Simulated assay, not measured.
Amino acid sequence: MTSPRTHAAVLAAAEALLIADQGGAIVVCDDFGDQLDAGAAEHLARELRNSCDQLWMSTRRSDAARAFRPEEMVRLSLRTGERAAHQMISPADKRELNVLRQLHLQLLPAMSSRAIVVFEGRHDVAALTAISQRRTGKPVPAAYGVRFVESEGHTEVIKICKLARQLGFRVIAGLDFDKPDQGADTSFANAQLVADDVVRLPERFAIEMSLVHGIPRQNLLDAFTDLNYHWQLGLTDLDQLNDGDLAKRVAKALHKSGLHAQYVYLLSGKVQPNVAIQFLDKAVELARGTTTGPVTLSL
């Protein structure tokens, strides 16, 4: 059943549409969509945009913002005690146009957040979110106004960081360090040019190794026996491997399967992937500005 507040919000939008349709109207809407569901917010925002000669709309709803072109959006922020307005620049080439898809996929839903952390791997966000949700006595990153964003490799991290900076976010880059001899330091330096700060995993670590490193042998065997049974990972003879080879084998299985969050939830409550937790906590600290970087974690 629709609430009275939703009825009132729809009626207010309908009244604005009626007036706007008369021509020459300048319409100003504050906190648009707060009482609307996602579909109604997007639909009515689009109708207003197309009906008015001029429309000024403030909203905390990413669904309403979808009705506007990227260059029509202005994000307001308060950084270092100063109010600022940020407006996107139209894409200059196909590469910028391609990364612009992240605006609707990830950045618009983060619009009301203060800071974002752009991680290099596709599964970093799923794994770190699972860790933050299963921990007790520690607020989730969203409680601090921090949103996690995923990418596909260090090159896309750079592009998304640039895009997010245009919108006035405090931007942190979270990088792997699994291939130290293949341009990792260049990527680390480049990220510092486009992000407010950077955190990187220890040398020879990607998110998968950070999740399994230091986990007791029996806990790894139990978790991956369960994953193998339910997801048919093709893992055999894990109990025959020494500890080092076991960690490498299951990390590779995680990378291939994408079952990062499922693995985290299978760990018993007292067993913690400490390297991944350090990565998570340092990223949030940098996003909040309670510490400074750049930081490369160490064991």
Rank of each mutant, 00 (worst) to 15 (best):
A67Q: 10
N242P: 15
Q133G: 00
V117N: 09
H260T: 05
V295Y: 00
G137R: 05
D21M: 11
L107H: 08
E96A: 09
G121M: 04
R170E: 06
I207H: 06
A191P: 01
I172G: 02
T155N: 12
N228Q: 10
L227V: 07
V250W: 00
A173D: 12
S132E: 12
D239M: 00
L259C: 05
L100S: 11
G183I: 09
A67N: 04
P294I: 05
L55A: 04
Y263L: 00
S298A: 09
K179P: 00
I277S: 04
V212P: 08
V271H: 07
T186C: 02
A126K: 10
L246T: 12
D197S: 15
V275H: 11
A41L: 05
K248H: 09
F188A: 09
I215D: 05
P180Q: 11
S62L: 05
N219D: 15
E150S: 13
A85R: 11
G168Y: 03
R122Y: 12
V10W: 02
R5E: 14
T236W: 00
R204T: 13
S62C: 12
A164N: 06
E120Y: 05
S3W: 01
A16S: 10
D281E: 12
M209P: 02
L76I: 12
E72D: 15
T290E: 14
V284M: 00
M73K: 03
V171G: 09
D197V: 01
D181Y: 05
L297C: 05
F279M: 14
T296H: 04
G39A: 11
K162D: 02
A84E: 14
I277L: 15
L48D: 09
R288E: 14
V140F: 05
A85K: 03
Q262W: 00
A13N: 07
F205E: 06
A25R: 08
V28A: 13
